[in-house]
């Protein structure tokens, strides 16, 4: 049900990411010195940009996987499951980007939220992919769901630069971008740069581990669905009067069964 190699790779990545995150926390919170300008607040720099990077990476992978599903030559259910898994992990990391950004903004700018271009784009990105995940929950056949969500995933990705451009203009035509304010941007060097790099690597590993796990779960769910559908078909074929089913059906399956035009 799960190849040994996949399992061991996943475990290794899991252990490495645990160690890396622990190192990032230790370096970020205790070993690096406080910044001259920002004081202790600079420590959030070791987690916020890496988390944001992972969110973008996750959406990038969702779009690539969606494209591979839509392209008939590479069409495979695996790409759909990969796209879905990556999007879910991406939504988690986007939420964390917003939360850490907000926590940083409060002491740095004096407000929890500012209509900064990047912050606003990230918020819209969050909602866009929440919509993608909601669309996936719509009952449909596997292929139907895969095509629809792949298209939705691609549209969302195409929309990101447009959204970003519009928000950048919206803000910069009226006031300077707050994030790029030179007095606030920290000078990063030495130990700090190393810790930031460590942050990027460790959260990327965390993403890889989560993706592998989520992908496997998606595979299991797909398999269970197939088995249950097989069973329903078989029971209907062999015992037309029989109502009781051995496997307890989840409501989703019932709906899918009713919706599918097989």
């Amino acid at each position: 049900m799960e190849s040994k190699r996949y399992k061991w790779t996943r475990r290794a990545i899991g252990i490495v990411s645990l160690l890396l995150v622990a190192a990032t926390v230790i370096f970020g919170l205790w070993i690096t010195p406080p910044d001259v300008v920002q004081g202790q607040l600079v420590r959030l720099i070791y987690v916020h940009p890496p988390v944001a990077w992972v969110a973008y990476l996750a959406y990038g992978i969702t779009s690539i996987a969606s494209t591979l599903y839509l392209w008939k030559r590479t069409r495979n259910m695996k790409w759909d499951l990969l796209a879905a898994s990556s999007a879910e992990v991406g939504v988690i990391f986007t939420a964390l980007t917003l939360v850490t950004g907000s926590i940083w903004g409060r002491p740095a700018w004096g407000v929890w939220w500012t209509w900064d271009a990047r912050l606003t784009t990230t918020a819209l990105l969050f909602v866009l992919y929440l919509g993608y995940l909601a669309l996936r929950r719509v009952p449909a056949t596997s292929h139907q769901r895969a095509v629809r969500s792949a298209i939705a995933g691609l549209i969302a990705f195409v929309d990101v630069p447009i959204v970003h451009q519009s928000v950048v203009w919206w803000r910069t035509l009226h006031q300077g971008a707050t994030v790029l304010n030179p007095s606030l941007s920290p000078k990063i060097h030495g130990e700090m740069a190393m810790t930031l790099l460590l942050g990027f690597i460790s959260f990327t590993f965390v993403y890889a581990w989560m993706l592998m796990h989520r992908y496997q779960i998606a595979g299991f769910e797909q398999k269970i669905l197939d088995i249950e559908l097989d069973q329903i078909l078989e029971e209907r074929l062999h015992e037309p009067g029989m109502e009781s089913m051995q496997v307890e059906l989840s409501p989703d399956v019932e709906q899918i069964d009713r919706h599918s035009k097989v």
Partner: peptide, 13 residues
């Protein structure tokens, strides 16, 4: 704020 940020990240992940 710093603690809250780290806690949020570690907690959610």
């Amino acid at each position: 704020y710093v603690e809250a940020g780290y806690l949020a990240v570690l907690g959610v992940l």
